[in-house]
Amino acid sequence: MTLMTLSLTFMPTPPRLIDLSNRSDHFHLRDGDECLYFHDYTPRQGATHSQGNQLIFNLKKSVLRRNEGHYRYKLQAIAQSAAMLRAAFNQSNWVFNQATFSPIPPSKMRDHPEYDDRMTRIIADACQGTNADVRELIIQGQGYDACHLQADGERLRPAQLEAMYTLAPPEPRGMVVLVDDVLTTGAHFVAAKNAILAQYPGTRVVGFFIARRVVPNPFANLADFLD
């Protein structure tokens, strides 16, 4: 299916803002960080738990399984994510020629067999036919274990990630739109934003995420025990 067909098949999900009601779930984010997301993703609940879970599970299918039949669901998830982004960009007041669109770097380097360019492909599809500056603005100097396979206490902190980042020329446009699949702690967004502002102060940096991780409420079922 083409991206145009998917745009007609799927009802676009409008993006939602990370604000005071949910920012504490992403504890590295700070006041003034602009982040938007489309779906909720609930860890350890399986792909059938929600539309967001299914989309993220499919996006994260390993590229090592590209020759298996179910890999088509990853390609469909890439197209669906691009359609959501394109709809959001078209409905905003942003002009494509005033922004640089870049993925937040994945965990693996380009020469690693598990390197996955899904976010680069999503952005390219979302901006297809426009004059947007679409490129990998942030270059990562080394790889690491994928964050979704780590416990929160083992995840890299913003300063550690920022130390791995350099910016590829030329200078970005007045606004940078960073895109990633899941907003978890916010460390990658903060690190990328810091790296951009260190070299280009005054740049507006906005994050778009296919989903945000929902932190389960440990007291959600407490009433069942109190009845």
Score class of each variant (00 low, 15 high):
residue 198 A to G: 04
residue 212 R to T: 02
residue 11 M to P: 10
residue 128 Q to Y: 09
residue 217 N to A: 04
residue 23 R to D: 04
residue 176 V to Q: 02
residue 46 G to Q: 01
residue 22 N to A: 02
residue 143 G to V: 11
residue 90 N to A: 12
residue 195 A to W: 08
residue 4 M to T: 15
residue 217 N to K: 11
residue 98 Q to H: 15
residue 118 R to Y: 02
residue 101 F to I: 10
residue 223 A to S: 14
residue 10 F to D: 13
residue 40 D to V: 11
residue 190 V to D: 00
residue 222 L to N: 07
residue 193 K to G: 05
residue 126 A to C: 05
residue 113 P to S: 06
residue 14 P to A: 02
residue 6 L to P: 06
residue 176 V to M: 06
residue 35 C to L: 06
residue 142 Q to R: 15
residue 140 Q to D: 08
residue 78 I to R: 03
residue 151 A to F: 13
residue 147 C to Y: 12
residue 19 D to W: 07
residue 97 N to W: 13
residue 104 I to E: 00
residue 97 N to L: 05
residue 47 A to K: 15
residue 13 T to E: 13
residue 65 R to L: 08
residue 185 T to G: 14
residue 89 F to K: 01
residue 196 I to S: 02
residue 155 R to N: 03
residue 114 E to Q: 12
residue 163 A to R: 04
residue 216 P to N: 03
residue 199 Q to Y: 07
residue 163 A to Q: 09
residue 75 L to H: 09
residue 153 G to E: 06
residue 13 T to A: 00
residue 143 G to P: 14
residue 156 L to W: 11
residue 90 N to P: 12
residue 62 S to G: 02
residue 112 H to V: 09
residue 57 F to W: 12
residue 124 A to L: 06
residue 22 N to F: 05
residue 157 R to G: 00
residue 212 R to Q: 08
residue 147 C to E: 15
residue 117 D to Q: 12
residue 50 S to W: 05
residue 206 V to N: 01
residue 211 A to E: 04
residue 6 L to K: 11
residue 106 P to D: 09
residue 140 Q to A: 07
residue 10 F to I: 11
residue 157 R to K: 10
residue 21 S to P: 12
residue 177 V to S: 00
residue 39 H to L: 09
residue 215 V to H: 02
residue 184 T to I: 14
residue 104 I to D: 00
residue 142 Q to N: 14
residue 206 V to F: 00
residue 216 P to C: 04
residue 201 P to C: 03
residue 33 D to Q: 03
residue 166 T to E: 05
residue 124 A to P: 06
residue 75 L to N: 10
residue 153 G to W: 12
residue 79 A to G: 15
residue 75 L to P: 10
residue 93 N to E: 15
residue 194 N to W: 11
residue 79 A to I: 14
residue 86 R to K: 13
residue 210 I to N: 03
residue 184 T to V: 11
residue 179 V to S: 00
residue 8 L to N: 10
residue 107 S to K: 12
residue 136 E to M: 05
residue 153 G to A: 07
residue 16 R to E: 04
residue 91 Q to E: 14
residue 42 T to W: 12
residue 160 Q to C: 00
residue 12 P to M: 07
residue 158 P to D: 03
residue 217 N to V: 06
residue 29 L to N: 01
residue 37 Y to Q: 04
residue 59 L to M: 01
residue 197 L to S: 03
residue 192 A to N: 10
residue 217 N to T: 01
residue 35 C to I: 11
residue 35 C to S: 03
residue 117 D to E: 12
residue 5 T to I: 13
residue 187 A to T: 08
residue 201 P to Q: 09
residue 188 H to C: 03
residue 40 D to S: 09
residue 220 A to D: 10
residue 200 Y to N: 01
residue 219 F to I: 12
residue 146 A to T: 15
residue 206 V to W: 07
residue 35 C to M: 05
residue 27 F to Y: 11
residue 169 P to E: 03
residue 213 R to H: 01
residue 219 F to H: 10
residue 109 M to L: 14
residue 112 H to K: 08
residue 227 D to S: 13
residue 188 H to L: 01
residue 167 L to V: 10
residue 170 P to G: 03
residue 144 Y to E: 07
residue 185 T to F: 03
residue 204 R to Q: 00
residue 65 R to S: 08
residue 169 P to G: 08
residue 10 F to W: 10
residue 40 D to M: 06
residue 53 N to R: 09
residue 135 R to A: 02
residue 129 G to M: 01
residue 198 A to T: 14
residue 182 V to Q: 10
residue 204 R to M: 03
residue 144 Y to M: 11
residue 159 A to L: 07
residue 48 T to M: 14
residue 175 M to P: 14
residue 67 N to H: 12
